[in-house]
Simulated assay, not measured.
Amino acid sequence: MTSPTDTVPALGRLPGRAGALLAELGDRAELHDLYDEAGSAVYHDITASDTHEVRELVALVRQSTGPVLELAAGSGRLTLPLLATGRHVTALELSPGMLAALDERLASAPVRLRERCTPVRGDMSRFDLGQRFGAIVLGTTSVSLLDAPGRAGLFAAVREHLAPGGRFLISTVDDALPGNGVEGEDGEGPGSDENVYELAGASGRVYRMHEYWPSGATTRKVTVFPGDTDGAQDGPVPVFTSSIAIVPADLLIDETTVAGLSLVARHPLPTGGARHRDVLLEMEVTA
């Protein structure tokens, strides 16, 4: 995890235009991991109203029976819609900051939803909850946070926690969009190494997210700046960053097969970004 007191030379290690902007900010920049305590608040603000993959996940969960386990629950972007299906949801999350945001979100939710949720602090790569679930959900392409050994631990734990006939639902990158690695005339677009998105948070704050992903790279670097960085004159400027692995669907299918899980279906999801499509994999324990 990166310290918010990093010096300018450390900041300069960030690639592309994000690195150049950090250099311009100099010692005013405060660099945080996107998933530390400060970053969790920003992540929650950005994703609170994001509906990407929600409809598809909820529809598949409705076809299952029994309680639901949500892995890497974060601040609850998927948790509340899953609770609305009428199921009990165990929301497992490692980050204390994310769990605090989830607790805050649940506190303002209707009692009928809040009473059906059990937040648990835990590592999705190794967990033992002592029960089985009709559906286990890992959304938001969060499998990208794990390395190969971590994914192996995840799949082994999922297999032990799925009830007979249960479903494991996991979203990931499907493939790169055409033009990957060929920069457009404006330096952005489907084929450029770096794309910048303007995002509006639930709070009304505006952010600029830089996604740096060179052709052939196995990770992409995401860096989030306040939207008013150019106009800021004084004071510290918080910047949030994370390296996200690229875990293609075909690789996940191969790994889960080894772990004793079988693919039931691939469900296409709306485009996940300028450079890739996402897919929702539906799996079951191998008979």
Rank of each mutant, 00 (worst) to 15 (best):
R159G: 06
R159V: 08
E160G: 08
A163C: 07
P164R: 00
G165V: 09
G166P: 10
G166E: 10
G166C: 10
R167F: 12
F168A: 02
L169P: 14
L169I: 08
L169Q: 03
S171F: 06
T172H: 02
V173R: 05
V173H: 06
D174L: 03
G181I: 05
G181F: 02
G184Y: 00
G184A: 07
E185V: 01
D186C: 06
G187Y: 00
G187E: 07
E188S: 13
P190T: 00
G191D: 10
G191F: 02
G191W: 00
G191H: 01
S192P: 15
N195R: 04
N195C: 10
Y197Q: 10
Y197K: 02
Y197L: 10
E198M: 03
L199Y: 02
L199C: 14
A200P: 14
A202V: 14
V206R: 07
Y207Q: 11
Y207I: 13
R208G: 15
R208T: 15
R208D: 15
H210P: 14
H210C: 11
H210S: 12
H210Q: 04
H210F: 11
H210R: 03
E211T: 11
E211L: 08
Y212H: 13
W213A: 12
S215G: 15
S215W: 03
G216A: 13
G216E: 06
A217Y: 09
A217P: 11
A217V: 07
T219I: 11
T219K: 10
T219R: 09
K221I: 15
K221W: 15
V222E: 07
V222M: 12
V222P: 13
V222I: 02
T223F: 03
T223Q: 02
T223I: 02
V224I: 08
V224C: 08
F225I: 01
F225P: 11
F225W: 05
T229A: 15
T229D: 13
T229Y: 03
D230E: 13
D230S: 08
D230N: 04
G231W: 12
A232E: 14
A232S: 06
Q233E: 13
D234E: 12
G235A: 09
G235I: 07
G235V: 12
P236G: 07
V237E: 10
P238T: 04
V239D: 14
F240H: 12
S242I: 09
S243T: 11
I244G: 10
A245V: 09
A245L: 10
I246P: 13
V247F: 01
V247Q: 04
P248Q: 02
P248K: 01
A249N: 05
A249L: 04
